[in-house]
Write a protein that binds this DNA or RNA. Structure first.
Lengths: 137, 137
DNA sequence: ATCATTGCAAACACTTTGCATACGC
DNA sequence: GCGTATGCAAAGTGTTTGCAATGAT
């Protein structure tokens, strides 16, 4: 996505497109392994030494609130973040620590919803070994 | 479950059945809303004033390691615990904060598993309003 | 000039660790 | 008696908050 498009997407979600926010959102879009706040901080710090952790957290919270980014609580020790907004599942590899997406059919999502509940979001997490790691356990 | 059965279950999983451990496990079995460590601590402290948070955490970690209890990471800010070991989904009510179980068919679980991955556990979390709360939002 | 954003330092909340005491076989 | 469990206090870790400085319109 070009810088201009990023600006437009952020603006249209009520987020003023500052240098830092563009960088965080761009990083999320281009790193589909669902990084943690700290991973984003360390990666961006190399590029722009001015970044602070506070700004990363501020930005992530704004992005989550606006609906552009979803938090993933697959591990209890740190939150991770996902810039894909369509419904899909998350696979957490306990060896390489990467989280990848997998498809979920609409039918499965419909079948899941329990009777009498009003659901707002569905999270499907699978933990195990990803294709890259399952042979070198 | 009678005290004796609890003793047997814990012992057979390599956990020496102390007063504290029995109380924590019994509490989990009898409170199917999936309490947090702190909820367990506060509830048991009333009954047995000797309990410390450390022991609650120690015990929960032992129970998780032995497979008798599963951790639930549906919220990022605290872990919650589940004494049901069969496969099922979790519904988190954002109003009353309770987590309830719902059934998942084996067929859905089979359909979920993505190609090429080796999965160890599946967690299905739905967030929203439970039947008790959906009318009084 | 005004209002939002940044970012340091400090505070916070949940969880783990170090270590001395107490318990169970 | 020896190994394990308990529990206090302290440390650790991820995240949020207070607030002054900076930036954008």
């Amino acid at each position: 996505m070009a810088e201009n498009d990023l600006n437009r997407v952020l603006s249209s979600h009520g987020i003023r497109p500052t240098l830092q926010r563009i960088a965080v959102y761009k990083y999320l879009l281009s790193h589909p392994v669902h990084p943690s706040a700290d991973t984003i901080y360390r990666s961006l710090s190399d590029e722009f030494p001015v970044f602070s952790r506070t700004t990363i957290y501020n930005t992530l919270n704004s992005l989550v609130k606006s609906g552009l980014v979803r938090p993933i609580n697959i591990q209890h020790d740190e939150q991770r973040f996902d810039s894909t907004t369509e419904d899909h599942g998350h696979f957490f590899c306990i060896k390489c620590n990467e989280i990848s997406d997998f498809d979920i059919t609409q039918k499965i999502l419909d079948d899941l919803c329990p009777e009498g509940y009003q659901n707002i979001r569905v999270d499907i997490f699978i933990t195990g070994f990803c294709p890259k790691c399952k042979d070198k356990q």
